[in-house]
């Protein structure tokens, strides 16, 4: 048998394409910004530095000023902490819980699946902003409460999605073969089901991330999210929306920041590094 020439090996035996690299680079950039924000932002977040509101881009204020005359560059840099941190943390928790439970429900099925599905459907029926309101009223607003609340809100959707995929895979013969072999639930989930649903699950992860960025801005708008004078990017767009008619950079810059982050997350997920299988024999 003739073998084709082995595929060109990247470092660590992974093959990445250009779009994926660009996506990863932008995400990495925003992560670095999020971590380094306090040291690189030129002005304190809450300080009014300009008497002119919706100020234009200038050498003094690179991204102009907002509706109160605060420096936008500093606010966007600090906002990265909240948006990147909270959204990524909560989408990761939500998807982890949802996907794990979804696969377990699909494999075990029966009454366990029925009860869990109905419970999470009930949770899904609560409007997210209302739920956030109740939680914040009950325990107060803090970053960890926000992350957990959003994770709980988005886990049922992720569960539904993963369960639907896993039920399909679970009906395949190779899963039946594993069951006939005597494999346990954990092995079946990890080795037979998960590798076959990972693609769509990651695409869902990217979408859900975008929704969470938007929900976070909604919560902030209601005063439930990030507390002033701090603001996440969504909140920055909301509070400066009045400047849109003036073409103020105060509303455009955070919008671009949100777009760049969400698009690059999706770019990376659609072009994940692929392991090059060793066929050198």
């Amino acid at each position: 048998m003739t073998m084709t020439a082995p595929a060109r090996k990247g470092h660590f035996g992974f093959h990445v394409n250009a779009v994926g690299i660009i996506g990863a680079a932008i995400i990495l950039f925003w992560m670095v910004v999020a971590i380094a924000a306090p040291w690189i932002s030129p002005y304190p977040v809450g300080q009014i530095v300009d008497f002119d509101y919706y100020g234009p881009i200038s050498s003094q204020f690179w991204f102009g000023t907002d509706y109160l005359g605060r420096d936008m560059l500093s606010r966007v840099l600090m906002g990265a902490r909240y948006t990147v941190g909270i959204s990524l943390a909560s989408v990761t928790i939500a998807c982890f819980i949802g996907v794990t439970l979804g696969m377990i429900a699909a494999v075990i099925s029966g009454w366990f699946d029925a009860i869990l599905s109905r419970f999470l459907d009930a949770l899904n029926s609560i409007p997210s902003l209302m739920f956030g309101l109740v939680v914040v009223a009950a325990v107060g607003s803090s970053i960890s409460v926000l992350v957990l609340t959003i994770a709980v809100l988005y886990a049922p959707g992720s569960y539904r999605f993963a369960r639907a995929l896993a039920v399909n895979v679970n009906a395949m013969d190779f899963v039946t073969v594993a069951r006939a072999r005597g494999e346990g639930t954990l092995y079946t989930i990890r080795e037979e089901i998960f590798p076959n649903i990972i693609g769509p699950v990651l695409a869902d992860f990217g979408l859900r991330f975008v929704f969470i960025v938007l929900l976070l801005s909604g919560l902030s708008f209601l005063g439930l999210g990030v507390q002033p004078p701090n603001a996440d990017w969504g909140a920055l767009v909301r509070e400066n929306i009045g400047g849109l008619s003036f073409g103020a950079p105060a509303v455009i810059v955070p919008s671009i920041a949100i777009a760049s982050l969400t698009i690059s997350v999706n770019m990376l997920i659609d072009n994940l590094p692929q392991r090059i299988r060793d066929r050198s024999e």
């Binding site: 395949m172 013969d173 190779f174 039946t176 006939a180 072999r181 005597g182 590798p195």
Partner: peptide, 29 residues
Amino acid sequence: GTRDRSKQELRKLQIVFQLADTALNPNKP
């Protein structure tokens, strides 16, 4: 059921399915 059988009993009896397309995990070498 398979859970009521010992590993040795399961080992001695193997089943091979009709459609090899679905009987092999497409993501595993």
